[in-house]
């Protein structure tokens, strides 16, 4: 696996239970590549890992560091450094109009309302969505809403983006469009996904299995191992 010089994300012996279930038990990993993918079956811990990195969940034991900030003690500073894109845009868009949605993160960072509105307008124009700021969110298509989510997450210019299966409900053209936009982003990206085609261009992939790293390395190797294991499982069941 590739060497990491300065990791932006580090898990140190992290343990976490959710309800009665133990998701992680002494999990350690260090991420420094620009594009890191997380794969694995549902329930393997991908989403939980991303939530730990954003400070949405705090470890029961061990520590998580984002850009050197320990998440328990620096929870308040994380939203400025980390952007989180959820699976379902309908549950994360908080405001009725596109402009308000994008400006919100900026006012949270300390901009005045006027500055934030101007910055939102500029960001929309720069991304081919000129004049969207007055549009009502519920009148946008699913793909347009996910794009608004992405823009509102990158507006405050975080250095790390965490994406939790952002493509799962999109049609092919929108998925390709969003993939292109993600590829061009300057931020470090950690993305949980089942879209192996998109992940194949990533720098590093982690295959999570029951809260552990089962395989870690170049996408081609990891994807092949993952697919082989599933096929092996199926054959074993048939036998």
């Amino acid at each position: 696996m590739p060497d990491t010089v300065s990791p932006y994300l580090r898990f140190d012996n992290v343990s976490l239970g959710r309800g009665a279930r133990t998701v992680f038990d002494g999990f350690s990993a260090s991420l420094g590549e620009r594009r890191v993918g997380l794969i694995g079956n549902n329930g393997s811990g991908k989403s939980t890992l991303l939530r730990l990195a954003a400070g949405l969940l705090l470890p029961d034991a061990g520590e998580v560091f984002v850009e050197g900030l320990e998440t328990k003690t620096h929870r308040g500073e994380l939203p400025g450094n980390v952007g989180f894109l959820f699976q379902n845009p309908d549950h994360q868009i908080l405001f009725p109009t596109v402009g308000e949605e994008i400006a919100f993160g900026l006012t949270e960072k300390g901009m005045t309302d006027a500055e934030a509105n101007a910055a939102a307008r500029e960001l929309l124009a720069a991304n081919g969505c000129e004049g969207w700021e007055k549009r009502a969110v519920h009148e946008l298509s699913e793909g347009q809403r996910q794009l608004v989510c992405l823009l509102s997450v990158i507006a405050p210019e975080p250095s790390v983006l965490l994406l939790d299966e952002p493509f799962s409900s999109l049609d092919l053209p929108t998925r390709l469009d969003l993939s292109d936009r993600l590829r061009a982003l300057p931020q470090a990206v950690v993305m949980a996904s089942h879209d192996f085609e998109f992940l194949s261009a990533f720098d590093r992939l982690l295959w999570l299995d029951d809260g552990r790293v089962r395989e870690d390395g170049r996408p081609a190797t990891v994807i092949a191992a993952y697919e082989a294991s599933i096929r092996g499982l199926k054959t074993a069941r048939r036998a």
Binding site: R51, G76, F86, N88, Q92, L94, E108, G110
Partner: peptide, 23 residues
């Protein structure tokens, strides 16, 4: 269930997290 997601989205955007310089 939606309320859980909304609360999480608010948290991810930094609402009500104590922080210097924020609102």
């Amino acid at each position: 269930r939606i309320a859980d997601h909304v609360a999480e989205a608010l948290d991810a955007r930094g609402v009500a997290r104590s922080r210097r310089g924020g609102r």
